[in-house]
């Protein structure tokens, strides 16, 4: 086993350990009870309709509570389009 394969095995073991711990620490799927739910989830589920007026809680979080994330996503898309048009403009002629 040379040095590069050894590094690959170490990296694979670390990533696999992280994935395994994440899978063990996930919420139980489908049953909602008060103990294993974070406080932020309860606040958003209870107060979304009164504070933002939207029925869809996911859109209310994306566009109102976490508007900065959507701004970053829009910036990423804008940069991608600008880069693609910059690269392919010269090939077009």
């Amino acid at each position: 086993m040379n040095k590069r394969n050894f590094a690959a095995v170490i990296f694979f073991a670390i990533v696999g350990a992280f994935l395994l711990f994440t899978a063990l620490m996930m919420h139980p799927f489908g049953n909602f009870n008060e103990e294993n739910t974070p406080e932020m989830d309860e606040y958003i589920i209870d107060n979304t309709q009164n504070e933002t007026g939207a029925d869809n809680g996911v859109t209310a979080v994306v566009f109102d509570y976490r508007g900065f994330d959507t701004l970053g996503e829009a910036t990423v898309l804008f940069t991608a389009v600008a880069g693609v048009i910059l690269v392919f403009r010269r090939l077009k002629k």
Partner: peptide, 14 residues
């Protein structure tokens, strides 16, 4: 303010 009635005239700036 929408209360589960699927009213489209809700949600402010969203």
């Amino acid at each position: 303010i929408g209360a589960g009635l699927a009213n489209i005239n809700t949600a402010g700036v969203i």
